[in-house]
Simulated assay, not measured.
Amino acid sequence: MNQEAVVPPEYCHFFKTLLVEELELETDLQKLHYGQCAVIGRLVLESKFYRLENVRVKSLPENLSLPEGTISLLLLGLTREKAVEQSVSIGSYCIVRGEVVLCNVVHANSRTLTARGVHEKVSSLSHDPAAQKEFLSWLRLTHKPAIDLWFIQSIDRPEDLLCRRLEIRGLTVR
């Protein structure tokens, strides 16, 4: 593993529109979005934890999108009280704003990591490629992407909003 060529990620200081799929399906945790994001999905409660399920974007070719509710992201910091305060309920479509983190799903009270933290740890092991590989393998088994929630609000017509945001993103990212 040659990590000298890998540039550390820069923190994203704006709420970049991302898909649940872009976060949940990223296999290289060093490339996971680092910073603020806005994600649209359907709010669900699984085993006492709030999650955000993916929304199917029907305007995308079928081979490029998953059926709705196929995958979901853990939402950190959302409690029943906060959900009531923000007027969101289970099954409602929401836009979530927060920060992308890696959550240890084996040890629930562990500190979260970021893509930057992963990069720094891998770089610190640059003298030992076997240790780098072992660390990344361990990370894939124990950590999953999550959103450290800052704001949540219910929305109408999630697919339309998501399509427009993706169109804008496509026009601005070159």
Results as ranks from 00 to 15, higher is better:
residue 16 K to R: 14
residue 104 N to K: 02
residue 13 H to F: 06
residue 162 L to M: 13
residue 99 E to Y: 01
residue 140 R to K: 11
residue 89 S to Q: 09
residue 49 F to W: 03
residue 78 L to G: 09
residue 30 Q to G: 14
residue 22 E to M: 11
residue 45 L to Y: 08
residue 167 E to T: 11
residue 146 A to E: 03
residue 104 N to Y: 04
residue 76 L to D: 11
residue 144 K to H: 08
residue 13 H to L: 09
residue 157 R to A: 14
residue 134 E to C: 09
residue 164 R to Y: 04
residue 33 H to Y: 02
residue 119 H to Y: 15
residue 54 N to Q: 05
residue 23 L to A: 06
residue 36 Q to E: 13
residue 122 V to P: 06
residue 58 K to A: 12
residue 56 R to P: 06
residue 28 D to H: 09
residue 80 R to C: 05
residue 73 L to H: 08
residue 93 Y to S: 13
residue 113 L to N: 11
residue 77 G to D: 03
residue 113 L to I: 09
residue 86 Q to E: 14
residue 55 V to M: 06
residue 6 V to W: 01
residue 58 K to Q: 02
residue 110 S to I: 07
residue 76 L to W: 03
residue 105 V to A: 09
residue 156 D to P: 00
residue 103 C to W: 05
residue 51 R to C: 03
residue 128 D to P: 01
residue 147 I to Q: 02
residue 132 Q to V: 15
residue 39 V to W: 00
residue 154 S to M: 05
residue 42 R to N: 05
residue 109 N to E: 15
residue 168 I to F: 15
residue 164 R to C: 04
residue 123 S to E: 13
residue 133 K to T: 15
residue 167 E to G: 10
residue 87 S to R: 13
residue 75 L to T: 11
residue 12 C to R: 07
residue 170 G to E: 14
residue 51 R to Y: 06
residue 33 H to S: 15
residue 139 L to R: 01
residue 42 R to H: 01
residue 3 Q to C: 07
residue 83 A to V: 04
residue 79 T to E: 05
residue 77 G to Y: 03
residue 94 C to N: 01
residue 92 S to F: 08
residue 123 S to C: 11
residue 50 Y to A: 08
residue 93 Y to F: 13
residue 31 K to F: 14
residue 143 H to I: 09
residue 55 V to N: 05
residue 54 N to I: 07
residue 26 E to Y: 04
residue 21 E to S: 13
residue 138 W to E: 10
residue 44 V to L: 08
residue 106 V to A: 13
residue 115 A to V: 12
residue 45 L to S: 08
residue 18 L to Y: 03
residue 127 H to S: 15
residue 64 L to R: 11
residue 72 S to P: 03
residue 48 K to G: 02
residue 82 K to D: 01
residue 66 L to H: 07
residue 165 R to A: 14
residue 55 V to L: 02
residue 113 L to E: 14
residue 171 L to G: 06
residue 137 S to L: 10
residue 85 E to S: 10
residue 143 H to W: 08
residue 28 D to K: 11
residue 78 L to A: 08
residue 166 L to A: 05
residue 76 L to R: 10
residue 60 L to S: 12
residue 37 C to T: 07
residue 24 E to P: 00
residue 23 L to H: 05
residue 151 F to M: 07
residue 12 C to N: 09
residue 119 H to P: 07
residue 11 Y to R: 12
